[in-house]
Design a protein around this nucleic acid. Structure first.
Lengths: 179, 179
DNA sequence: ATCAGCATGTAAGGCGTTACATGATTCA
DNA sequence: TGAATCATGTAACGCCTTACATGCTGAT
């Protein structure tokens, strides 16, 4: 498997539950997963091609349900093994490029009101995200005992807990900057 | 300025306080800034070259204090303006690729003990980072009234607050997974 | 008729990581 | 003598974003 292309693992993880097309995968990445991992068509389709060549996934028959042709992919036993190997690896890389914090750190180069406004913009974004996450949480609580929903639930509560910490920090930060 | 090369802003931000060499910049990125932004030599040196060509920064006389030649850079008025323009922009992109959450989300594909162990690994990392951040915080509290230290202080408390939220979540998550 | 949504894919170009090349000085 | 630290830079390679190309179906 491509060493530095982590999208492969996202695809394997999703396919471990059900067969999906590239378009379906993109939709998943635009949903709950999008809070911690992003993907694009130009990212997904080439990954699907090379993963099929490697035998990690396989094409299923083209089906036509409305719209255009659909090409659902299925995970192979080799793919399942690769997914499990990755899960068992102890090394992880959590890369983050937090432009909000960068602007905060260099806030001294502009008027203090700019930084306060930037914090307020961040605060609004976080509030919107929290609303979405809380909706996810409510839906998941109804089905917590089913399949792998505990794992989805935990990623959602992770988001909620950290976003709530962000909001508390925003309040404190604004207070400190306004003296 | 290169449209998608955010390292430029990090460099401008750092140079807005003092003249620095590429090597110095790397050291800053390995310190407190590293918690929300990473950089490498192969990233920094080419950026310095192209930013000098654009007139955002300028080379200062080579000085030799031990070791090899040093090439400190100085921010120009054009550079200062670019930095301020960026700070005043309302759009920000906070990109994160959280492999820990990805593994959690797809935890159902392996034994539950694997996910618990992965959470514990994450927990240890967070604890170590918290110790470093708390040290930064203590040092900054002594000089909070000076220059731009409020901004550094706020990025540090942001880290501490979110990392503490992570730890609380870890405890809850482990409890839930162990039933 | 036309727009939105479904659906697959390619191409260009930029950005970044990693490894490599080079070399001086200081300290054990 | 050898390792560590200081210091600058290049090259290969891969990955991703963005934009583009194409085209069907169903609803308004």
């Amino acid at each position: 498997m491509a060493k530095d292309r982590k999208i492969d693992l996202v695809i394997l993880g999703l396919l471990s539950h059900e067969d999906l097309t590239g378009y379906d995968i993109k939709k998943r990445l635009d949903g709950a997963i999008g809070f911690f991992w992003k993907g694009s068509f130009g990212n997904i389709y080439p990954a699907l091609s090379s993963m099929e060549e490697e035998g990690l996934i396989s094409k299923k028959k083209n089906s036509k349900t409305g719209g255009r042709e659909r090409i659902p992919y299925h995970i192979t036993s080799k793919g399942t093994k690769a997914l499990r190997t990755w899960l068992e690896e102890t090394q992880v890389s959590n890369e983050l490029k937090y432009e909000t914090l960068l602007k905060l750190y260099f806030g001294g180069a502009a008027d203090r009101s700019i930084t306060i406004r930037n914090i307020e913009i961040f605060e609004e974004d976080v509030k919107k995200s929290l609303a979405v996450l809380n909706m996810y949480k409510e839906n998941l609580e109804k089905v917590l005992d089913e399949e792998d929903h505990v794992f989805y639930y935990l990623t959602v509560t992770f988001g909620i807990d950290t976003y709530e910490a962000y909001l508390k920090w925003c309040t404190k930060a604004k207070k400190l900057l306004k003296n």
